[in-house]
Amino acid sequence: MSHEYRPPRRRSRLTRRGRLALFLGVLLAVGAVVLIPVLRGVQELERPRRLTIPEGWRAAQVYAAVDRELKLPPGSAKSAVPTVAPALPAEAKGNPEGYLFPATYPVTSKTTPAALLAHMVRTANEKLATKAVADGGKAHGMTPYQTATMASVIEAEAESRADMGKVARVVHNRLAKSMPLQMDSTLNYALNRNTVDTTLSDTRIDSPFNTYERQGLPPTPIDSPGLEAMAAAVAPTPGDWLYFVTVKPGDTRFSVTYAEHRKHVADFNRRRAAHAGPRTG
């Protein structure tokens, strides 16, 4: 049997550089297989939750909500206030009341009170800087802080968004006539309560927030106003009203004269059984 001659096969040998390239290629291939699932796992590990801050909340309520949502000891959010002070106007003197803008904010386990409060303050500054609000405030001779302060009173006093423009007009008209605002909401802020029942003794408390005895706006905002209240503060509904009272839900009556206002208050008193308290101005 004849045999065909075949030359012996030589094994191909990789150079040092070739071996290194092959080794790195294997590592990258294996790493990609492992890394992609790991990255996917990190991205899917936690979905942001939502924290909603309603219009009209006071700073203390916001702090408590942040602590609850972030599962932190009470007082944690309040202790972070100094970190946001530089973003506040000088008039605020480090107090973020009125600048914790009401909105829905995403939070995760890595969210800190300082970062969350800073986001709220930035948002408030942005809303106050919108052209309509900023130009309207200037037209009335108000600083952004004064706009926020007036808006906070409107937010607290208006029974509905539809009434905000008229409530704003009452505030402007009273200021123009050097009349005290006589807003129950500012008394409630001073007394740290929420009620529609204001007594004569309440109107005599010694507080810079007592707008029954002191003229002008309160020294600071009294809650977190929304954009609608800000807009109303700088563009109030035209009118001569000086008084208002909410006789029942959905029925706020605005008056030009005190005599007319007293009639509406008497009507409210007759409906007292419905437990719908007045918002007077």
Rank of each mutant, 00 (worst) to 15 (best):
G56W: 09
P8R: 02
S12Q: 05
T199D: 00
A139T: 02
V26Y: 11
Q43H: 11
R174E: 01
M164Q: 03
D184G: 07
D163C: 11
V133A: 05
S2I: 02
R6S: 03
R271A: 03
V256C: 08
A59H: 01
A29R: 09
G165T: 00
E157Y: 01
T83S: 14
Q146M: 05
V153W: 13
G136T: 01
L24G: 15
T198P: 00
K138Q: 07
A80D: 04
I222L: 04
P180W: 06
E4V: 08
G31Q: 13
A60E: 09
E213H: 13
E155D: 15
R19G: 11
A134I: 02
L100Y: 09
G136L: 02
R169A: 05
A176I: 08
R262Y: 02
R17A: 12
R58P: 00
P218H: 09
N173Y: 12
K71I: 03
P102D: 01
H119L: 13
P144W: 11
A92H: 10
Q146K: 13
P96H: 14
K93G: 07
N269Y: 14
Y105I: 06
V167W: 01
T147W: 12
L242S: 03
E260M: 10
P89K: 02
L117A: 12
V84I: 13
A65M: 10
E44S: 09
K263A: 14
V81W: 09
A139M: 07
P86N: 10
P7L: 01
N188I: 03
V167D: 00
E44M: 10
T112D: 07
F244N: 00
L200S: 11
R40F: 14
I154S: 10
M183Y: 08
A59C: 12
A274M: 07
R193K: 13
F101D: 02
V62E: 00
T237V: 04
R214H: 15
A85V: 03
M230C: 15
L217F: 12
H119W: 08
T149F: 02
V121Y: 07
S185C: 09
R122G: 01
P8W: 13
G141L: 11
G41L: 14
P74T: 10
V171E: 04
P278R: 02
A21P: 00
G226F: 14
T186Y: 12
W241A: 02
P73V: 03
P278L: 11
